[in-house]
Design a protein around this nucleic acid. Structure first.
Lengths: 139, 139
DNA sequence: TTGCTCCTCACGTCACGTGAGGTGGC
DNA sequence: TTGCTCCTCACGTCACGTGAGGTGGC
């Protein structure tokens, strides 16, 4: 799957297509429960011009995650809300470290290349020389 | 405050000095509540040889954080437990990105320097360029 | 009209904190 | 003995899910 497919998939998932009874069935909860979740700010389904809720695939995923936290792990809605926010932060930070690791590898390769061309010597991957053991394997 | 002071402070904070009634007073909770928290795995006070609980300064800080989450934010104990774990992960990831940013800056400086020396610039000892700060000072 | 939606209100259950009650070791 | 600790049990309160009841628009 390439990036265009990702984007297409993402758009597809955002589409508000399910009415409340279907969303409730898909998420395995009472429709009234979905109204409670909305009032507490846990999901924000779209509304039709007739003021009817419409849930997207992504909303359903979120609802299932909420079910896991409440039913299986016994966490209340205030806790679920904070946890979902923190998961977002964690996700962003993980992306950031991954990006930094890539940039660092590239920069070290560049430094090595320009130094070896300077000496006219052999090219040795820098990270094998200087990176500490816990950095040398992919992570 | 230098690193030795940090270490001393840390040890000081870990010291199990408060009996349950004092810990409860400092944290602003009922002693029985502290026993509940322990049973649920939210705090692990030390025990004396006579099986009496002893709380450290760090335990008190943790208890105050728990109070904030439960009383002010309305989160139940299952939620508090997960949130505390996630806060640990976030903290570790933040340290990691900070470290990576430092390494990246150093590497880019090195690449820049060796590129300029290639053009007839000044030569800089390699280890000063590549050793990250946390490796160049004792720790 | 039928079957959905919207909303509010009430009830049952459960988690949690508080407190009582009885015990034992400095 | 006094004042603490240890524990278990019970009660009150509150959050949450379920459901009923009444409304309105395709």
């Amino acid at each position: 799957m390439d990036e265009r497919d990702d984007a297409a998939m993402s758009q597809y998932r955002e589409r508000a297509v399910y009415i409340i009874s279907v969303a409730a069935e898909l998420a395995g909860v009472h429709p009234q429960t979905l109204r409670i979740y909305e009032r507490k700010g846990l999901v924000q389904p779209k509304r039709t011009s007739g003021n009817t809720r419409r849930y997207s695939e992504r909303d359903i995923e979120r609802l299932r995650a909420i079910q896991d936290l409440t039913q299986d792990q016994g966490i209340n809605l205030a806790g679920v809300k904070m946890i979902i926010e923190m998961q977002g932060e964690l996700e962003a930070l993980r992306r950031r470290t991954k990006e930094l690791e890539t940039l660092l590898r590239a920069s070290r390769r560049a430094a090595q290349l320009s130094r070896s061309s300077e000496r006219g010597g052999q090219i040795v991957p820098l990270r094998n020389v200087f990176l500490p053991p816990w950095e040398s394997s992919a992570r």
